[in-house]
């Protein structure tokens, strides 16, 4: 059975036409019946992956505009570093939501007349945390560590933060309300991890598919691989405990 090339499964046509998969050759040589079966399977797979790829729209207490905070100055953003707000990511398995105090650090003075900011201030005055909802949720038996990924790629290898975060979170700086753009499935995780088990190319091959273009983050070319050992674990117990 051919592997379902869900990686590029934006549409059926792309699966059928663009992939350099051996399955393509298979189509010609087998009879119509098997082709039918394959198409059904691919349709099902593509449909599943499309559903799995991005999250349903998430209703947040405030429509937080990521593009305004992290986006390019040219487009009216402020180019704030991801780790400025999501400060836990570099030292905890959980990236976390910035504490209200951090928001208020700026919004005590900035844009105080806007409706969302007023609501924000209200929460602050009542001493109640914002009831943010999860956008990227993993099954409960998955133990993913933000800390390890940020430490490795940002601090040990020196890659740009937005690019590193973007591996899994997509190009958040263009989003209005954050949404999930990557499947976050186990096979998806493993593809990257497998690439990091020997000294191969600088960036993981599957990762290239979802990499944010360096130009987008105002950097020239991928950052150098600084002799950080490429020993990404592929051990089940690394994530399932």
């Amino acid at each position: 059975m051919p592997k379902i090339p869900y990686q590029q499964a934006h549409s059926l046509s792309r699966i059928a036409l663009t992939r350099r998969h051996r399955a393509d050759e298979g189509f010609r040589s087998v009879g119509t019946a098997s082709l039918l079966v394959v198409i059904v399977v691919v349709l099902f797979g593509a449909g599943f992956m499309l559903v799995a790829r991005s999250s349903p729209p998430v209703m947040q207490p405030i429509e937080f505009p990521h593009f305004r905070h992290a986006g390019s100055v040219l487009e009216g953003g402020h180019e704030i570093n991801c780790l400025y707000c999501h400060t836990y990511a570099r030292r905890s398995p959980v990236a976390g939501i910035p504490p209200l105090a951090k928001c208020m650090g700026c919004h005590r003075y900035i844009a105080t007349d806007k409706e969302p900011i007023k609501r924000l201030t209200e929460y602050w005055k009542n001493g109640r945390p914002m009831p943010w909802r999860k956008v990227h949720d993993l099954p409960d038996f998955v133990y993913f560590s933000h800390e390890r990924h940020i430490q490795r790629f940002v601090f040990q290898e020196g890659q740009p933060v937005q690019q590193v975060c973007g591996y899994c979170h997509g190009d958040v700086k263009t989003m209005k309300v954050a949404e999930r753009r990557r499947p976050l499935t186990m096979g998806w995780c493993l593809r990257c991890h497998e690439q990091f088990q020997d000294t191969g190319s600088q960036t993981p091959a599957p990762a290239q598919d979802w990499l944010i273009e360096p130009a987008d983050v105002g950097l020239a070319g991928p950052a150098a691989h600084r002799g950080v050992p490429r020993n990404a674990p592929s051990d089940c117990w690394e994530c399932h405990k």
Partner: peptide, 19 residues
């Protein structure tokens, strides 16, 4: 028994962070 793998993994991550 896992030999407290959650503690082992946490320690390993810490060690890796510090090279």
């Amino acid at each position: 028994c896992t030999f407290c793998v959650q503690r082992i993994r946490a320690a390993k991550n810490r060690a890796k962070n510090e090279n």
